[in-house]
């Protein structure tokens, strides 16, 4: 554990809490892509199966349980409790276009051809693109609520901080995981356009609206 990873994890935690608070306080999930949230639930469910096979630390297990359970709660809130506020008309990204290629790639490019390892790899690849339905939805509506942009900024920062963590671990621990690093870089790059808008608009007190 180093400082970059700790801040990265906290940023990830903050993102999830922000999203749940936004939905709970406004009793609405308007502007949030249910498809991205389904993908995140799938990411956690496939990655953290090692909860049952390996114990790393209390921190590790607690965080894994938190991520799995909150992602399921988020999907429940969107598709059941606050379904009436879900903006399905704008959430039209086709999930099979992500899940199928990512599944194929996980079979072909992995560290070890075993069920748990393939699921872990699938989860890493899927996470790198899971935000696309959300970004697609925002590009269709042309805007995002400020709280939603805070959520996305925290969520994007988490993987960017993990990159710093991997640089640190490479130099000081000799640790290097090519799959995680490449996928993490792809994931972070996808947020760059959003980061630019966030810094130039939201941090200056303006609402996030996309250039027409």
């Amino acid at each position: 554990m180093n400082i970059f990873r700790l801040i990265g994890d906290m940023s990830h935690l903050l993102a999830i809490v922000l999203l749940l608070l936004k939905m709970w306080k406004t009793r609405s999930c308007a502007g949030i892509s249910g498809k991205s949230q389904i993908l995140f639930a799938l990411v956690f469910a496939t990655r953290y199966l090692d909860l049952f096979t390996a114990f790393i630390s209390a921190y590790n297990s607690t965080m894994k349980l938190f991520f799995i359970s909150t992602s399921l709660v988020t999907v429940y809130l969107m598709y059941f409790k606050f379904r009436a506020t879900y903006d399905a008309n704008h959430d039209t990204f086709r999930l099979e276009f992500l899940v199928v290629p990512v599944g194929g790639l996980a079979f072909l490019v992995n560290h070890n051809f075993s069920p748990l390892e393939i699921l872990w790899t699938f989860s890493i690849y899927l996470e790198s693109v899971a935000i696309l339905p959300q970004l697609f939805m925002m590009s269709k509506t042309g805007e995002a609520e400020t709280i939603t942009s805070h959520y996305l900024f925290a969520l994007g920062s988490y993987r960017a901080l993990y990159i710093l963590n991997w640089v640190f671990r490479y130099y000081f621990e000799g640790f290097f995981d090519l799959i995680a690093v490449v996928a993490g870089c792809v994931q972070t790059i996808l947020y760059c356009d959003f980061f630019y808008l966030y810094i130039t608009k939201v941090l200056k007190g303006k609402k996030l609206s996309l250039p027409a």
Binding site: R5, D9, H12, D50, A54, I56, S57, N60, M63, K64, F67, H111, N112, W120, Y162, N165, F175, D177, I179, A180
Partner: peptide, 10 residues
Amino acid sequence: RGDKDSKDEL
């Protein structure tokens, strides 16, 4: 990849 190595990450 050692099992413990990357599975300590979230």
